[in-house]
Simulated scan of single mutants.
Amino acid sequence: MKLDLDEMLQKVQAGRWELRAIDWDAPGADRVRPEQREQLRDFMCDLVWIEHVGARGFAALADKAPDPRLRAIYRCFEREEEQHARAELALMRRWGMVRPGEIPDANINVRLVVAWLDRHADDIDFATLTCVIAMLEVALDGALVKFLLDEVHDPVCHAVFAHINRDEARHLAVDFHVMEQNGMRPQTRATLRMLARALHPTAALGLLVYVPLLSRMRDNLVRMGFDEERLYRAIRRFDQVGSRSPHTRNSVAYRAIRAHGRMVVRRDHPYHYFGDAMVALTRHIPPRLLGPLPAWAQALSERRA
């Protein structure tokens, strides 16, 4: 998936939008039915924090990017993810899910991911982090956001996500371009480096916090009436789009994340016993043991910039 980085950087910069341009008091907030509100609150809270985690991921990619244009693009993406989180938080306020100035608590699985990222995001190799972010964005854009727009008929919500979807489309275009470029490089050294990192205890810990986060988000969606097959179809898209390029298929990082995706989409796979067990186990972790949120996670606010 060949991409002109100069052109993409210009598109990203030209596509910047501002929260203050949205009429947050426009009619339509009452289209969120009372019986939807409580279920939507958990969904939106997850969404807000996942966007914020995505911003941290792009910040780490920017630090590792081998090209200054790509570095600039990732810095823009970092700001966009923070913008998405603030926009979704503003929607929560519009719908009466949070009070003005209130920041919803992150669930324990998000807290675990935040804590792990704060310590180890810079240790993840560039190719693997690119693939993980692409997988999450495919799922977010291809299933979660579409489900939200099907369920919620507030025109302000649709206006906000029109902006977010345009941003995410650019993110995915860059993600798949970079995965292809990574696959063009000799893979022997990349394989050895990835294996060395995989054997490190921090990698195992990362897996232990990542897996239950996905399973918990799926459970929250199913409680809202979401057909989890829609999520699995979105995850299959990562496989389908990535596999179109022989260079992407050559990437050991892509193959590893693709293998994980293939386990996820099979509901009868033993992987799900592990994921469900980890969700149950992590529910018993007292949040106070994790300490305060790191500074980058505390930056979440509703400022309309």
Rank of each mutant, 00 (worst) to 15 (best):
V160K: 04
L289Y: 06
F274W: 04
G57D: 06
D175Q: 07
W95K: 14
V132N: 06
L117C: 07
D227M: 03
A85Q: 01
T191P: 09
N165D: 11
A256F: 05
P155W: 06
L5A: 11
M44V: 05
Q298E: 15
V145I: 09
F238N: 10
R237W: 03
D42M: 09
G206W: 04
A234T: 00
M8A: 10
L221T: 11
M97E: 00
H120K: 03
F43K: 07
V98L: 07
L140Y: 01
P246W: 01
K11T: 13
P34G: 12
M97D: 03
A169H: 11
Q39E: 13
A62S: 14
I257C: 09
A299Y: 08
R255W: 00
A173G: 10
R69Q: 15
G291K: 14
R185H: 08
F126L: 12
W17K: 00
C157V: 11
D122Q: 04
R303C: 06
G57W: 02
R303T: 10
A72G: 12
H269T: 10
D268S: 06
C76D: 14
F238E: 04
A14V: 01
R218K: 12
A134K: 02
L231E: 03
H158A: 15
G206E: 06
A127K: 12
Q83S: 14
H158K: 11
R170A: 00
K11H: 15
D268I: 03
R166A: 15
M1N: 14
Q10K: 14
Q39V: 13
D122S: 13
